[in-house]
Simulated assay, not measured.
Amino acid sequence: MQLVKPLNYNTDSLPAIKLIPLDGEIPLNIQGIRSPKTIPPTDIRWVKVLEFLRSNNLASNSRKLYERELKRFLAWSELHYHELRPRHLALYKEYLRDELRTDAGKPLSKSSINAGVAALKSFFKWMCYTYPEIIATNPTLGIKLEKVPLPPAQSLTPEQMERVWSALELLGETKQRDTALVHILSHGLRAGEVVQLNVGSFDGKLLFLPDTKTNEPRLVPLQKESREVVQEYLQLRQQQGEVLNSNSPLMISHHASYKGERLSYYGIYFAVEKIGELAHIEDLHPHSFRHTYATDLILLGLDPTHARKLTGHHSDRAFRRYTLRGEQQAAIAAYYRAIGEEAEQ
């Protein structure tokens, strides 16, 4: 039997060792030297931020705000999360208040400072709950928000709503859809909630919202006229050959690139802005209808607890702007009754 001759290896005959790059990084050579064009390693702190953003049910605008504010904080501090203490967060708030400037060179408003602090509070609360082995104590607990006057409700007047309904009559292809859209928005839904609605979310009388900003399901009763408008819109789509099932989107896009697909968050904003232009209402946006709905509920005399349940407001303070107007209107009416005059309509 012929024996296999053993091979003699030396350093010259061995192939070069190649390290497999991760995430597009340029590989190291055997001495561990990297090319000058090396992509720096991902900040592990930012990885946690991305996980936080993915794990929370955030509306598009809220996600952008959180991402911007958390990125700003990480650029300010090089400390790892477990090294942070309340004094560091207090210094960061001072930085936002005293040093940071807008593009116009002005100090940040109290609302902008609060947005940055609120984003940090939400993130570190999540970190303490999700990774207690990394950060056991929330460093933002002692950091207070700036005191900001409660903004008034930006409700539409009855005259402005009449102009909205008239503007819808001027639309072409999107008339039926946008009419149904305004009817739904006029029942207090957020734009992000409308995006998620399916045909099965509407039972002919109520809208069911399984996944809302407050993480609680919500039932929204529609007025008779609104129910009929939504039914007519769905019937029109069926007449045009669309096969609807419970998972079909309730609102669909008419954009050439997305025709027939679910109407997006930005699609809703674009549709409402167009209606605002036709109605000659400056800065009309989807939330205008939510403000109007909440205000009307209070003016109708609905119990604020019931009104909050219908609108899905998370905090009493956020809803207070609507109860304030209701109380003011009631006080004015009581005054005119007391002096024997009719309140101005």
Rank of each mutant, 00 (worst) to 15 (best):
L3C: 14
L3Y: 06
S13P: 03
A16S: 13
K18E: 15
E25H: 15
E25T: 13
E25L: 15
Q31W: 13
G32I: 11
I33F: 11
K37A: 14
K37I: 10
I39H: 13
W46Q: 12
V47H: 08
R54L: 13
S55Q: 12
S60R: 14
R63W: 09
L65Q: 10
R68L: 15
R68Y: 15
R68N: 12
R68C: 14
R85V: 09
L89H: 07
L91S: 14
Y95P: 03
L96N: 02
R97C: 11
L100I: 12
T102K: 01
G105H: 00
S112T: 15
I113S: 04
G116P: 09
C128D: 01
Y129T: 14
T130G: 03
T130N: 07
P139M: 00
T140Y: 03
L141K: 14
K147I: 01
P149L: 09
Q154K: 13
S155R: 09
P158I: 03
Q160S: 03
L168A: 02
L171A: 07
G172P: 12
G172M: 05
Q176D: 15
Q176C: 10
Q176H: 14
L185T: 07
S186T: 03
E193A: 10
L197D: 00
N198G: 04
S201M: 08
L207D: 00
L209G: 07
P210N: 01
L219H: 07
Q223R: 13
K224F: 11
K224D: 11
V229G: 04
L236K: 02
Q239G: 08
V243R: 11
P249G: 00
L250R: 01
K259R: 13
G260M: 01
S264R: 07
F270L: 14
I275Y: 05
E277H: 15
H287M: 02
H291V: 01
T295V: 09
L297Y: 03
R308I: 10
L310W: 04
T311S: 06
T311I: 14
T311W: 05
H313P: 06
S315M: 08
A318F: 03
A318E: 03
R321V: 11
G326E: 07
A333Q: 10
A334P: 05
Y335Q: 12
Y336G: 06
